[in-house]
Amino acid sequence: MKRFAPLIAAGALFATAACQQPALAAEKVVEAPAAAVKSKEGNGLKTAIFAGGCFWGVEAVFSHTKGVTSAVSGYHGGTKRQADYKLVSSGVTDHVEAVKVTYDPSVVRYDELLRIYFSVIIDPTLKNRQGPDRGAHYNAELVPVSAEQRKVAAAYLAQLKKTKLWDRPIVTSISPARKFYAAEAYHQDFAAKNPRHGYILRWDAPKVAALKRLYPSLYRAEFRRN
């Protein structure tokens, strides 16, 4: 069994139920093509929501992405009462684990975040699971929060479906934006606080390394803390 770092708050012990399953074959890294439709979101910080399995890895990758000013782990799709880790990880809620990303589109565009997401964060051919984790709360979903993001996301999904990058059909979907609820404090910046945690080393550190290797111009060594 993987163990948490000794200084983690007692509440973090609940996290042993999720983001922790028997080791499987390494996840495949695929260099997705640049988006044919570029996002045009204007000036000022923007937000977007990405669900892609355990939120630790999604947050870790985007926290190492230039232009991202905040990446918050949380829950999307269900109610406020359901926004509790024990409930969500039991699979009885309408939530998926998700990350709310705030970014500067003058540094990194939404379509570039999509490219990173499909290249190193998820396997878009999997439904209700990612990596070693199983359950509908680990489903990979794009959650655009504006008409422009929805247009770009739909165009990029259509573009990817015409490629032969994956052996199986793409099933990642676009979900309507609902209220996002931040996860418990012990989940925030989890990879940065626990770099030697077994799950982080096995599943999430390789994703950050792939970001650096594939997109060096968008990689930031400093972890962006919330």
Rank of each mutant, 00 (worst) to 15 (best):
A26C: 07
V96F: 02
V208M: 10
F223H: 15
A17F: 04
E59S: 07
V120Q: 14
T65S: 04
A26Q: 14
C54T: 03
R202E: 15
S73G: 03
P124Q: 06
R202F: 14
V88I: 09
Q149R: 08
I121M: 14
E141W: 13
I49C: 11
V61A: 09
G67C: 13
E222S: 15
V30R: 07
L45F: 12
P144F: 06
Y85K: 00
A177F: 10
H197S: 11
A210Q: 08
D133Y: 06
H197N: 15
A147K: 05
A154F: 01
V72Y: 01
G42N: 03
V108Q: 01
G135H: 00
Q82T: 00
K66T: 03
I200L: 11
K28S: 13
S73A: 13
L157H: 14
V29N: 03
I116A: 04
E59F: 04
G131Y: 03
A177Y: 10
S175H: 10
A26K: 13
T47H: 12
R109P: 05
P6I: 12
F62W: 09
P22T: 10
T47Y: 10
G57D: 01
K2I: 08
S90F: 01
R81N: 08
P132Q: 11
V61S: 07
R150M: 05
D189C: 02
K151Q: 15
D189A: 12
K2Q: 08
R213N: 12
E148C: 05
Q20T: 12
G42Y: 00
S39C: 04
F55T: 01
D84H: 04
F50E: 04
A183P: 00
V208E: 07
Q188T: 03
K193N: 15
Y199F: 11
V120D: 12
T69Q: 08
Y156N: 05
C19I: 06
E27K: 09
G57A: 07
V68N: 02
K100M: 10
S175M: 03
T65G: 05
A147R: 11
V171H: 07
A10D: 10
Y186M: 04
L201F: 02
G77W: 04
K38H: 10
T172I: 08
Q130I: 08
A210M: 15
V145T: 14
A136T: 07
D111N: 13
I174D: 01
S39I: 07
K2V: 09
T93V: 02
K2N: 11
L201V: 15
A183T: 00
V108I: 14
A71T: 12
L218A: 11
D204N: 11
Q82P: 00
L142Y: 06
R150H: 09
A15Q: 09
G78C: 05
T172R: 04
Y138E: 13
D84C: 04
L214W: 02
L7C: 12
E184D: 15
A192R: 13
L126P: 00
T125Y: 06
N128V: 01
K66Q: 14
Q159P: 14
A71R: 08
S70V: 01
T102Y: 11
Y110S: 04
L211E: 08
F190R: 05
A5G: 11
H95C: 00
R225S: 13
P169F: 15
P176W: 06
Q188W: 11
H95V: 02
L126H: 08
T102P: 07
A48S: 10
L24V: 08
K86F: 06
F55H: 13
N128I: 02
H95I: 01
L211H: 01
T47N: 12
K162R: 14
A35I: 06
